[in-house]
Each structure stands twice: as structure tokens, then as C-alpha cells.
Amino acid sequence: MAKRTMITIKAKPKRFNYRIAGLGFRDGHVLVHRATHEAFWSFPGGRAEIGETSAETLKREMVEELGVEVTVGPLLWVVENFFHYEKRDWHELGFYYRMEIPQHFPFHPTDIVHRLADGGNDLEFKWVEATTASLTALDIPPYFIAEQIETLPETTRHLVWFDGELDDK
């Protein structure tokens, strides 16, 4: 088996990350996850590996994290995301896709539906209403997604995001 190489650059105290995430919807809800030691949530996904496309990354991550094969839909956002986390300044290039999750993956409108030990993190997944109010209350960066969740872009949008602020320049 070939060695896996994630696309990340560690330049202490800064770090670059190439992350792919998916927005999966069911019954007016969107799937989110978090590491149990963190207060915030995020959309499921992970770091790309050298030699794989962003769609391949999303498919691989969902098999690893959810145990299901997803169908990757349109690319919604390409985000240059700059933020501070765990005492580091991060520069993240994020691709956010719409994805279809198989119907046999568990659904419940309020409860945790899936748990997973992933490296040093315990992850939990749940469905949350796909509304601006619900995502804002949940604390799910990057925050512009909460603002746009009810009217997803019809074509791919490129955004630059600085620690919670959209750069409109």
C-alpha cells in the first residue's frame, strides 16, 4: 500500500491546509459533524491527498467517516479561508460540494446519528435544519455558509474569508 500524503504545509506557527467538504441534505436538514472536544461544528470532509482530485477526496473521506459511498454533486464554493485555531494562523483552501448521501445512512432530526474514532479525535455526526437560524445557532464556520444555506449558489462561487469576515474587495 502506498504511503498517504495529505496536502498540508506546516510552517510554524502557521499552517496551510487543502480541505474538501460536502453538504448532504435530507428532509430539510444538512449533515454536520464535530470532534467531541470542540464546541463548533463543521461540514464533513477532510484533507486532500497528493494525486487525488477534490471529488475523489470527498468520496474517500465519506467512506472513511460515514461508511457509505456518496455521489458528489456541483461545487458550490471555493474558499480561501484565513483563521486562527489551536494557537496557529491557518490558510486553508476549501472546496465545498453538494453531495448525495445514500438513503440507508441513518437520519434523525435531532439526535446524533453516527460516531467514529478518527485518529486522535472522536467525531459525532448529526442532521440539523438547513436554515440560516439553525446553522448560526450551531456555530459552524465558515459562517457565510449559514447565510447562504437557504439559497445555494447556482454556479461555483469563489470567496475570501478572513476570520469570520468576507472580503468583498
Rank of each mutant, 00 (worst) to 15 (best):
T36A: 02
F82K: 12
E80P: 05
L159M: 10
A130K: 09
F40A: 00
W161N: 08
G73Q: 11
D118T: 03
G67E: 06
K14R: 09
F144M: 09
H158F: 14
A117C: 07
E165V: 10
V32Q: 03
K3Q: 13
L123C: 01
Q103C: 11
T5M: 14
P153A: 03
L138M: 06
F82W: 14
E124S: 01
F105K: 04
L152D: 10
V128F: 11
I140N: 07
E150A: 10
F95R: 05
D118H: 07
G22H: 14
R47F: 08
E69A: 08
R4K: 15
E38D: 02
K126R: 04
H29S: 01
A55R: 14
T57M: 09
D139S: 10
Y96K: 02
E65F: 06
I50D: 07
D27V: 02
A39R: 03
A133C: 10
R98M: 12
T132E: 03
R60Q: 06
P74S: 08
T131V: 00
R98V: 08
P106M: 07
F25N: 02
L93P: 04
D122N: 12
W77L: 02
F43H: 00
F107T: 02
L66A: 02
G119A: 05
E129A: 13
F82S: 10
K12M: 13
H91P: 06
G94E: 09
Q148C: 12
S134C: 07
R60W: 02
T5G: 11
W77E: 01
L93K: 08
V113P: 15
A55K: 12
K12I: 12
D122R: 11
D163S: 09
V68R: 01
P109S: 01
L152I: 08
M1I: 12
P142S: 08
F82T: 09
G120E: 04
A2I: 11
T5S: 12
I112T: 14
K169H: 13
S42P: 00
A117I: 13
F95I: 00
